Amino acid sequence: MSNSLEGKVAVITGGTTGIGLAIAKEFVAEGAKVVVTALQQEALDEAVREIGPRSFGAKADASSIAEMDALLKRVKADHGRLDAVIANAVADEHAPLGKITEEQFDKMVGVNLKGVLFTIQSAMPLLESDGSIILIGSTASVAPPAGMSIYGAIKAAFHGMVRSLIQDAKDTGVRINILSPGAVDTPSLRRALIKAAGADMADAIVQSIAQRSPAGRIGDAREIGKVAVFLASDASSYVNGVELFVDGGLRQV
């Protein structure tokens, strides 16, 4: 433990499973207090037990402007500071062209784009002057698989949004970056592939991604968590507005 986040307070949306949970564990290991959000109290309770001391759960809908605004203000009031916000909550309503519904589209945009933007807007006046906002993107921003057109479009939109937001945030000291994982073996990856391509194709797609990767494998969620620690720490104090791909080199080939 290097304690690179000692004394810092972070909010991680969708922090009860997969990449969000892994980020929370790494933050706590580095000395931070973390507040993880989810829709279900049972999931929050289990995540807090798993993460351990210095972790807290809060029910909040990432697509609700009012709920996220109230949550962030409560965290600042309860803990005296807010140092990092990791926008990780995601809706994964995937479908191939011809089967996409308006309901799926609205849910994806509501959580994955609107929710992220307004979480950032609510967080900005509350963050410390050396605060960090991290959007969890995806290599789908540049190479979305079949059946994931809405998801890919939204993740690609992060790049343009952040390029503008860092100009709005000039002189605040707050940095805004995108952490874009490649394929990571999580339950959400399996669900996404099943929805996009069918249950009979999910395993084959995972194996294909691993074979194409220069690393020869798909990622582990802890590896994403360690990069998130870097982006939230003083070690990345001059890193601002980037999309950092953590994908074993797959994007480069």
Score class of each variant (00 low, 15 high):
residue 39 L to K: 13
residue 197 A to R: 15
residue 80 G to Y: 09
residue 34 V to S: 06
residue 15 G to Y: 02
residue 109 V to D: 02
residue 239 V to G: 10
residue 151 Y to W: 02
residue 234 D to I: 03
residue 68 M to Q: 07
residue 248 G to N: 10
residue 174 V to D: 05
residue 240 N to S: 09
residue 114 K to P: 08
residue 253 V to T: 15
residue 23 I to M: 15
residue 215 A to P: 09
residue 231 L to W: 12
residue 177 N to I: 02
residue 58 A to N: 04
residue 132 S to H: 02
residue 7 G to E: 05
residue 183 A to W: 15
residue 132 S to F: 02
residue 88 N to R: 01
residue 78 D to L: 07
residue 230 F to S: 10
residue 178 I to E: 03
residue 97 L to H: 06
residue 112 N to V: 08
residue 156 A to N: 00
residue 186 T to R: 08
residue 161 M to L: 14
residue 55 S to N: 04
residue 8 K to M: 06
residue 238 Y to T: 09
residue 12 I to S: 01
residue 122 S to Q: 09
residue 135 L to E: 13
residue 202 A to D: 13
residue 5 L to Y: 07
residue 76 K to Y: 09
residue 74 R to L: 11
residue 244 L to S: 05
residue 168 D to H: 12
residue 171 D to T: 07
residue 15 G to E: 04
residue 43 A to Y: 03
residue 131 G to S: 01
residue 126 L to K: 03
residue 75 V to Q: 07
residue 17 T to L: 07
residue 190 R to Y: 00
residue 67 E to F: 12
residue 30 E to G: 02
residue 60 A to C: 11
residue 228 A to T: 04
residue 112 N to C: 10
residue 152 G to C: 03
residue 197 A to N: 15
residue 49 R to D: 15
residue 136 I to R: 01
residue 105 F to Y: 14
residue 191 R to D: 07
residue 59 K to D: 00
residue 227 V to F: 11
residue 149 S to G: 11
residue 137 G to H: 00
residue 245 F to P: 03
residue 100 I to R: 11
residue 35 V to F: 08
residue 44 L to F: 09
residue 202 A to G: 11
residue 31 G to A: 06
residue 193 L to N: 10
residue 77 A to N: 13
residue 1 M to P: 13
residue 27 F to L: 05
residue 187 P to S: 01
residue 148 M to A: 15
residue 55 S to T: 02
residue 140 A to N: 12
residue 238 Y to V: 10
residue 194 I to A: 13
residue 200 D to W: 12
residue 65 I to K: 09
residue 85 V to S: 05
residue 189 L to H: 12
residue 201 M to W: 08
residue 51 I to Q: 07
residue 185 D to N: 15
residue 224 I to D: 14
residue 80 G to R: 11
residue 212 R to C: 02
residue 176 I to A: 08
